Computed example of a mutant assay.
Amino acid sequence: MTRHIGSTPTTADFEALAHAAFARIPEPFAEHLDGITVHVQEFADAETLAAVGLQDPFQLTGLYHGRPMSEESVWISGQFPPRITLYRQPLLAEWRATGVQLDDLVTHVVIHEVGHHFGLSDEEMHALEQGGP
């Protein structure tokens, strides 16, 4: 989705972009994504921001909620299924500030959060993005 004069992308638009990003994830990774849900909120709440060490709600564009696959066990029960939350207003602000296409931006955030599902840290994902080990 490119920038255009007209209406601001809605929650439904963001959900559609997130689902399109999931559809582009190749096997063997895609087979491990069943059950992950996507939610869109305007901003992260104060509790969520504090939990990730942020104060400015515009600094958080997405968040993975759940246990990484590497920590899953048949002995753990009573937990919600994993989910990814996209924060619409910070994503819109980044989209407008950077000129990156919105679908590319949402895909980047979704892939980053999926990385957490596989147990990767932020540092490991940044290294992979930079082509490092």
Rank of each mutant, 00 (worst) to 15 (best):
H65I: 08
H32I: 01
L120P: 00
R96T: 03
A127W: 06
F58N: 08
L60S: 01
S73D: 14
F58P: 02
W75D: 13
Q55A: 14
W95E: 05
E124Q: 15
A21N: 04
E94C: 02
E123H: 10
Q79Y: 10
H117S: 03
A16T: 06
T61N: 10
F80M: 11
E72C: 08
R3T: 04
D34H: 12
L33N: 02
P9H: 06
P81H: 11
R96Y: 04
G62D: 06
L92P: 02
A23E: 13
G132D: 14
H32D: 10
A97R: 13
E15A: 11
P57L: 07
R3L: 13
A16D: 08
L33W: 03
I84E: 00
P68A: 12
P90E: 08
A50T: 06
D45Q: 11
T107S: 15
G131C: 14
E123C: 00
G99I: 04
L120S: 01
H108A: 15
Q41A: 15
E27H: 11
Q89K: 11
E42K: 09
T85G: 00
H108W: 03
V109C: 03
L63I: 07
I111V: 14
P57Q: 09
Q89F: 04
A127D: 15
T11H: 11
E123W: 05
H19E: 14
G66A: 11
Q130M: 14
T10Y: 06
D34G: 14
D13M: 01
T98V: 05
H116S: 10
P26R: 15
G99F: 05
E124C: 02
A23P: 00
G99T: 04
S77A: 12
E123D: 13
D122G: 00
Q55F: 04
Q130N: 11
A16L: 06
A44Y: 06
T2I: 08
P81W: 09
A50M: 04
I5K: 09
G66D: 14
V52Q: 07
T61F: 02
E94P: 01
P26D: 12
L120Q: 06
V40N: 07
T8M: 11
E71C: 07
L86R: 01
P90F: 03
G99E: 10
L102K: 05
T61D: 05
L54P: 01
V109R: 00
A51D: 13
Q101V: 04
P57D: 06
E31M: 08
A127N: 15
H65V: 07
T98Q: 09
G131K: 12
A127E: 15
F14R: 03
H19A: 12
A93H: 11
Q130R: 15
Y87E: 09
A46F: 00
H112S: 06
R83K: 14
F43D: 08
H116W: 06
T2W: 07
P57W: 05
A127K: 15
A50N: 09
P82S: 14
I76A: 14
E124R: 14
T11K: 12
D122V: 07
V106G: 03
T2Q: 08
L105Y: 04
T8P: 01
T48K: 03
A93S: 09
L120F: 13
I84P: 02
V52S: 07
L91N: 02
D13T: 05
L17V: 01
L60D: 00
G78W: 05
G66K: 08
F80R: 13
